[in-house]
Every structure is written in structure tokens, then in C-alpha cells.
Design a protein around this nucleic acid. Sequence first.
DNA 1: AGGCTTGTTGAACGAGCGTACAACAGTGCA
DNA 2: TGCACTGTTGTACGCTCGTTCAACAAGCCT
Lengths: 234, 234
Amino acid sequence: MKGGRGAGESATRRAPAASARSRATRTPRFERQLPEQRRRALIDATIVCLKRYGHDGLSIRTISAAAGVSVGLINHHFPNKDELVAAAYRHFNSELVEGMQAAVARAEGSPRARMRAFLESSFAPPNLDADVLAVWVVFWGLYRHSPLIQRVHHETYQGYVRLLRAMLADLLSGRRARAGGIDLKLAAIGLTALLDGLWLEWCLEPGTFRPAEAVALCEAWVESLVSRVAGPAD
Amino acid sequence: MKGGRGAGESATRRAPAASARSRATRTPRFERQLPEQRRRALIDATIVCLKRYGHDGLSIRTISAAAGVSVGLINHHFPNKDELVAAAYRHFNSELVEGMQAAVARAEGSPRARMRAFLESSFAPPNLDADVLAVWVVFWGLYRHSPLIQRVHHETYQGYVRLLRAMLADLLSGRRARAGGIDLKLAAIGLTALLDGLWLEWCLEPGTFRPAEAVALCEAWVESLVSRVAGPAD
DNA sequence: AGGCTTGTTGAACGAGCGTACAACAGTGCA
DNA sequence: TGCACTGTTGTACGCTCGTTCAACAAGCCT
């Protein structure tokens, strides 16, 4: 953090273009933007800083420099730093869930194909990335002592859980009532754990196994889950 | 973090005890300690602060206050803050691994019993604790940008991996060469992932399942692993 | 062309940070 | 009892932090 972050990271200053309005070609000192656009740019810059500098990247000066903007602007668009970080967390979460949902919708085949699409999307870019893990880890570190982060987490995590639950329900298509409910619930929990654990392992040490192998492991779990439900009854 | 941490968290100042050395019972302003003891106390205070305040707890003033010691003392026993944090990380890691090893050694029965002891120790206090997870998360957050933390991690993580590998090897007792090596390696990776994932899930949301259920899930995985090796060959 | 709205700037402030260091004081030994 | 050693204290320094706010200026409307 000592050696200065370097300003002007984004090309905000425009080249002097020929303007019909003034004879002397003037370079505007800044460019006004709609609040929504600027907020989005600041959120993006926050994520970039998190990837680059970890927890230390969460500073007003670092973020505003990355966004090519002055220090004061952040507090014009966000009441304080915590709200910006929470907004970034919400955005990060939403992008993940929406990406997953899109991948599943794109598959549109059997429940099994949709599950496969879900798993493959979990173990492929942009999710499967050490930088992305680093960002998550910083957010998780904030979780315990920031009610704001907690609220955002619960709001967005719901979407993820619902997606996974729905897919499992489709796979087991109504057979749920037949098998032991506890076993099923446990198996679903296990799938999430396996998925998260493998994802974590890969990000920490990408060399030890291939993404396809992770998908295979998860599919085997799902398979045993299905057969456990359908097996004794069919 | 605004409202001051409050000093005198530990009872450093002794009550005026009758001393044979001086007539006026003098209260010593501080107590000298051996470097090793003091270092240990500072490391413990660091962990306490991490649990209490998360990443914000990693400040010289917060830690020294928690240790009941002045700000200057830390730099007398540690060259700088990063070294203290790294030492705390090493201690935290070692305690985990040693606790696991002790639990396994205590079991001293069949390989299966030792594996059960390992799993039960993973899903029981003091490891299974939201505070403990919070500490891990902060350390993980430091990992990417601190070579010091990286070094400590690799040194201590080895012990954990070796323990798990040894137990798996015992369980499969020499049958390793027979089965498909890739499958086996994958299954071992899967076990780690399942274990870590379940542990994480429980710490984040303790209500959703019981520790015993997590142990059962892991044991089922190990079971399928053993039968996959022994099954086709026996 | 002039005025208005408001997005944007950048200096300034108080607080907390990690570290350095001179002074102090326990403790064991002669 | 006095001395030397060294663990311990607490102030001070330079820096970065988040936030504030008066001044500025881009862009639209009339």
C-alpha cells in the first residue's frame, strides 16, 4: 500500500475533439453522468480493487482512483463507505445467481441436463477464479460485524438456495414424499457442501484436479441421491 | 469501533500483597515476563481480538489493550505487526492439527474408528464454532497479498493433509494399487471438500443440521470409497 | 446567451494507524 | 546494597483513513 496507486486509471479525460460549439477546442475537466451509471461504475471499481488489493482495496481513495474520480464523489452517490461496499456485495451476489439461472435456462432439457448445466457453470469461468474467491473471502470477513452485509447476504443467498432446491425437486419430481425426508434433506445439504468445498479447493490449488472432475463428483452424488429415492420404490 | 475498546481487560495490576522486601507495600506497575510467555500472551490476545472484532481487531492498539500491555511492547517481541499476525496464524493452525492428531491417537482402534474420531473432532467444539470460522476467514483474506501468511499456510497445511492422507491409506491398507488411481485421488479430494463444505455450512447456519449428521455424511462417503476399492477385487 | 440544476472537485479536519525511541523499573547477581 | 540487564512504558511522528463542504462547471432549458 505504500507505493501509491497511480491516478488516472481510466481514460476519463477526453481527447480534444473538434466542437462546433466553441472555437478554442476545450477539454472538459470531467464528464457528468447519470447517478445510476456512476453508482454502477463505483461498484465495479470496488470489485476491481478487492480483486487487486484484497481487504486493503476497500478504501475511498483507492476506489475513487480506480474509478477515475475524485474522493468526494463517492459520498455524493453513497451515504458512506459501508453502503458502497454493501451495494458491491449485492451486485456481486446477484451476478452470480443470475449467471447460474441463465446457464440453467439455456440448457432447457431434462432436469438432469439442467443440473449438469448448473454444475458446469459452477466450475467454469467467471466463477471458478482465485480472484473471485478472494473477493468472497473479504465479504465473508465483513459479514459477522456488519449488519448491512448480513442483510444483503440473506436477501441474495435466498435466490441461490431456491435455484438449487428447485432443481433438486425437479430431479426427484414428486417422489419426495416417498423416501425418508431427513435423508433427502441431508443429501441436499451434502450436495451444497460438496459443491462449495470443491469450488474452494480448486480456487486455492487449481492444479490438483480438473473442473470436469469436480462436475463428475457432484453428478455422482446427485445420482446416488436420485437412486436412493427412486430405487427402493421403483 | 468508535466507542473505545476499554483498557485493563486483563488483571495485570496485582493487589498490594504483603512483601517482606519493603515496608510500604508497593504495587508494581507491571510484571516482567519471559519473552516466550509474553509472546504467547500476545498471540492469544490477537486471536481474541480477531474473534471479537474481525479484521478491525488486527490493530496494535486493540491487541495490546486486550493483552493488558502498552502499545510499545509488541514491537519489542515482534519485529512488526505482520510477524505477530503470522505467528498467530501459525499457532491457530498448529492447535487445529494437534487437536486432530490427539483425537485420532486417542481413538487407537481400527482405521475406521480413527477416521470416525477424526470426523467427530472436526464437527465438535472447539473447531465447530462461528467465531473460529470468522478467524479463519480473516486469515484467508490476508493470504493472497501476504507472502508471510502464505509461507505459514503451506508449512502448517502440510500437517493436516498428511494426517488425512495417512488415515485414508490405513483404511484402504495397501489396496491402493489395485483400483483406478484417479478415482481414488478424486474421492479423497471429494472427502476433503465435503468435510470443509459441511463445516462451513454449519458455522454459517448452525440450525440446519446436527454435527452427527455431518459425520454420518462423511462416513457414508468414506464407506463408498472403501467399497469401491475393495468391492470389485474381493 | 444567460440562468439553473446538480454532478463533480479537492482541500481540510479529526481520528486512528504502525513504528521508533528515550526513559523507566522489575529482577537477579555480586 | 548497589549494579547491570532487559522487559516495559508511553509519548511522539508521519501517514492514511472516512467524511465534510464550499467552490466549480457541465449540460439542459428557455
